[in-house]
């Protein structure tokens, strides 16, 4: 489990780095070019994908075996069962978060890998999907579960591989938490940004207007995304207070883009 888990973490790091190209330009050309480049590897891509699926399935199978063996080790449960607070929310829900991630990965593959490519490119597909309320929710819940899963995973893997000791335990545990936050929040940025309408499609603006309950948070995130875009366009040195005011309302950015 530890070896397959760490390799999958390696994949996630590369995956997040690839996704960040969605933010490198406004048209999604960079991201589309990256996707095309991956496709151009032809059979090699299938080898890599097969390897990934094999890792994922192996992780799942080992996880199932461990879970069943562990359940079988105590058939008579305690009438009163109290822990001593050493276990964390993440550590005691590894199976639950694992199953959520499994379902999410299947949906994710159906969304972007097993579906026919839209004529306007993969970036547009991603933006459309993540702007939908259902799409955004699925992706936020999926990567949220992933983040929780990872916050226990890294130190646990280090323990299992015997790479932990008293000197490194605290740094390793912290590194694991940091990794979980970077990956969890990193992936969650995409649905948050697209759903809030800070970037990309016009669809999201109408969605937001229809969801009054969500406006406050969404507006904040939208603002952050919009000012990022401001930096890109005008250059850091050229920003004037009046420009910052301009980009304050994400809706105005959306309109600007349409023109």
């Amino acid at each position: 489990m530890s070896v397959t888990g760490l390799l999958l973490i390696g994949f996630l790091v590369v995956h997040l780095a690839g996704n960040l190209q969605l933010f490198s330009d406004d048209t999604g050309e960079h991201f589309n070019a990256y996707a095309e480049k991956l496709k151009s590897f032809g059979p090699l891509l299938y080898v890599a994908e097969f390897g990934l699926i094999a890792l994922f399935v192996a992780h799942l199978a080992l996880g199932l075996r461990v879970t069943f063996e562990n359940r079988a080790a105590r058939s008579q449960r305690y009438a009163l069962d109290r822990d001593r607070g050493a276990r964390s929310f993440a550590s005691s829900t590894m199976v639950v978060t694992g199953v959520i991630v499994l379902v999410f990965v299947i949906v994710h593959l159906l969304d972007f890998r097993l579906r026919e490519m839209a004529p306007d490119g993969l970036a547009a597909m991603v933006v459309r999907r993540l702007s939908e309320p259902a799409g955004a929710l699925i992706y936020i819940v999926g990567v949220g579960a992933l983040g929780i899963h990872l916050s226990h995973a890294f130190r646990s893997a280090m323990q299992t591989l015997g790479l932990n000791n008293t000197r490194y335990d605290v740094p390793i545990a912290r590194a694991g938490k940091a990794l979980a936050i970077v990956l969890g929040v990193g992936f969650a940025i995409f649905p948050l940004v697209y759903f809030s309408g800070a970037k990309g499609s016009t669809h999201s603006a109408s969605v937001r207007a229809a969801e009054p309950g969500a406006t406050e948070d969404v507006y904040f995130l939208g603002k952050g995304g919009a000012s990022l875009r401001g930096f890109e366009f005008r250059g850091v040195g050229a920003i004037e207070p009046s420009h910052l005011d301009d980009v304050g309302d994400p809706r105005s950015i959306g309109r600007e883009e349409q023109r």
Binding site: N70, A72, A73, D83, A86, S88, S91, M94, S156, T160
Partner: peptide, 15 residues
């Protein structure tokens, strides 16, 4: 002996 596997939750250490 049929013991379970370690999932590194450290409840053992605490107990």
């Amino acid at each position: 002996e049929g013991f379970g596997n370690c999932t590194n939750e450290s409840e053992c250490e605490a107990a």
